[in-house]
């Protein structure tokens, strides 16, 4: 079967000195839950953001559902983006709007400029948005303003916004990096369960190797803009982890340590 997402020889050069991606090739099939791990500055974020072109790749190709993303024109790109949900480290909600409005933003990609500008969402969309919020345990927060929520709650709204798009792929860029271990677990559980249930493929950037091992069906290790490991969690041995985090061991250990303390 043709992969859902096929990345070939992707590079991204910010300037002459700084190469973020140095030729990444990666095929992702439907239904996979892929964790991308690696030290900070390895290019995890750039990789994810290149897929929906929040970052413009320098060279290489990205095919999503048979559409060449890197060549897509305005309208085509919008359609691609509408079918890819994105979850951000800092949630990126519109904090002066209600929780429900934030989730409904997930529908904007399927609406005209005019209908969206005046927030004319269909009743069916609203019902669906409320159902999603109930499912992640935010039924009492629906009409609160987004800035009244805690970090973990905000990220669950972020997940609902992505799910409201009815996407076939979700990109999550460090979704739990700003959260405490307890909220992290709730957020990862919600993400994993919803993706599995609706057959959504998911690509998650993670700092924490143990979290990646617990949730992912496949792990991709990135170091200095290159793939250095690609396989199931069971094959990710200490040797690989040490290689991935070589020279930046403190990042990996500090996170495992704090998790150990608070658990």
């Amino acid at each position: 079967m043709e992969p859902l997402l096929s990345i070939q020889q992707l590079t991204k050069q910010y300037n002459k000195q700084h190469t973020a991606l140095a030729g990444i090739s990666l095929d992702v099939s439907r239904g996979e839950f892929v964790a991308v791990i690696g030290p900070s500055g390895a290019g995890k974020s750039t990789l994810l953001r290149s897929i929906n072109r929040l970052a413009e790749p320098t060279s290489g190709s990205i095919a999503f559902e048979g559409v060449r993303v890197e060549q897509a024109r305005k309208k085509e790109l919008r359609q691609v983006r509408a079918n890819i949900g994105m979850i951000f480290q800092h949630y990126n909600l519109v904090y002066r709007l209600s929780v429900l409005e934030n989730v409904l933003h997930g529908r904007l990609g399927h609406m005209s400029s005019f209908a969206g500008m005046f927030s004319r969402y269909s009743e069916a969309d609203k019902e669906e948005a409320i159902r999603l919020l109930r499912k992640v345990g935010l039924e009492n927060e629906i009409y609160k303003r987004a800035d009244e929520l805690s970090g973990g709650q905000k990220q669950r709204v972020g997940i609902c916004r992505a799910l409201a798009q009815k996407p076939s792929l979700i990109l999550a860029d460090e979704p739990i990096a700003s959260l405490d271990p307890r909220s992290s677990k709730i957020v990862m559980d919600a993400l994993r369960a919803n993706c599995e249930e609706q057959g959504i493929t998911c690509l998650v950037n993670l700092h924490q190797v143990d979290v990646a091992k617990r949730y992912a069906t496949r792990i991709v290790g990135i170091k200095a803009g290159k793939v250095v490991f690609d396989g199931p969690p069971s094959e990710l041995h200490e040797g690989y982890i040490e290689h991935i985090y070589e020279g930046k061991e403190h990042e990996q250990f500090s996170i495992t340590n704090t998790e150990g303390i608070s658990a």
């Binding site: 929906n52 929040l54 919008r78 359609q79 691609v80 983006r81 509408a82 079918n83 890819i84 949900g85 994105m86 951000f88 990126n92 909600l93 519109v94 933003h105 997930g106 529908r107 904007l108 990609g109 399927h110 005209s112 400029s113 969206g116 916004r161 992505a162 798009q165």
Partner: peptide, 8 residues
Amino acid sequence: AIRSVGGT
């Protein structure tokens, strides 16, 4: 965020 959902 709005760009990523495919908004205009």
